[in-house]
Design a protein around this nucleic acid. Sequence first.
DNA 1: CCCATATTAGAACGTACGTTCTAGAACAAT
DNA 2: ATTGTTCTAGAACGTACGTTCTAATATGGG
Lengths: 198, 198
Amino acid sequence: MGRIAKFDRDDLTRAALELAAERGPGAVTVAALSAAVGAPTGSIYHRFESREALLAEIWMDVVESFQHGFIARLAEADDVRGAAAAARFMAEWVKEHPLEARLLLLHHRKDFVSGKWPASLVERAAALEPAMGAALGGFAKRAFGRADREVIARVRFALLDAPFGGIKPYVQEGKPLPPGFDQMVTATVRAVLGGKAR
Amino acid sequence: MGRIAKFDRDDLTRAALELAAERGPGAVTVAALSAAVGAPTGSIYHRFESREALLAEIWMDVVESFQHGFIARLAEADDVRGAAAAARFMAEWVKEHPLEARLLLLHHRKDFVSGKWPASLVERAAALEPAMGAALGGFAKRAFGRADREVIARVRFALLDAPFGGIKPYVQEGKPLPPGFDQMVTATVRAVLGGKAR
DNA sequence: CCCATATTAGAACGTACGTTCTAGAACAAT
DNA sequence: ATTGTTCTAGAACGTACGTTCTAATATGGG
């Protein structure tokens, strides 16, 4: 019962994602957002508690999108070869999700959720780090028989941080990745994680 | 002639750097800045044309600080071994300049200079990219005999982007780099730039 | 000593923003 | 048809911010 909604959550998150990807999270003002979807500012507050809640939600969606895919890929890996495949996932994901990539690679969490997570997201937020930690630790154990700090640091560097650094400039310029990019990532993984168990 | 100044440019840029490093560029409000140095807001405008001009200046100082050091290191390199030494420079610089590192690694230029560079900085800004390009190209030519796009992309990845990605999480958390970090960077350089000329 | 000047000091102004408020419209159930 | 509810619509409000304005204060030169 009640009047039919002209603007649903998805319209708003989608428009917010586009605004944030193109002009940064600061450009996601309530006025700009309502102008983008053609809604009055008040309507936004029928769907979201606050601007911060909306921003936190799109950030959460993006992080989960990447993390789920990456973890799924890493779950299949039990050696350096499989790890390299997981490392290449970020480049794939960026191609398939250009807008989301701009959020994840060009900004930090604090630009989207400055203080605490809104109540509706605390559970998902709390699950984020442990899930990634378990995935990396599980792989380390399978591939190297141990999951101490030193190994985890190497795995994280090779599979996440180095690819991240390499991709970022291209996302920033809005240009496609160079031809040899996957080979560079693969070479990095092999070098850092060792030809054998190391 | 004229009254003696209680607050000079350096007091202000220093305080702005600290604010930006600790709480992000958004925290560098004119009010926060004047409170930090104990000056009235009006005095800031005796030294800087605008808040944006001040932010642009501290960004420029930081970028130049890193870039000059890196380029100097790279200028001494003519093979993969020398390149690895240049790649390790970022980790050194971060240790020596923790505040500056937080600016350079945790934010983008657009957070500090959103539109055009202020007139006082356009020359320095214009020199930034060519200097880095020349340094990378020069090294590529010395080490590999060519400086085409593909080689430059590899050099940039190995010497700048990958170390950048690897260092960023530690700067973010305010933690020291892990023990094996330099070896990971070195291994990456060797793997991506090839054992020999490749 | 006095004047020009550079600066401190902080109030004042305009604007942009997030949020809330008031009014009205559309739909479902009775 | 009436009522309750959910939404649109946009004006209104309070706040935080960058900037400018007015006044006072200290310094050096004539």
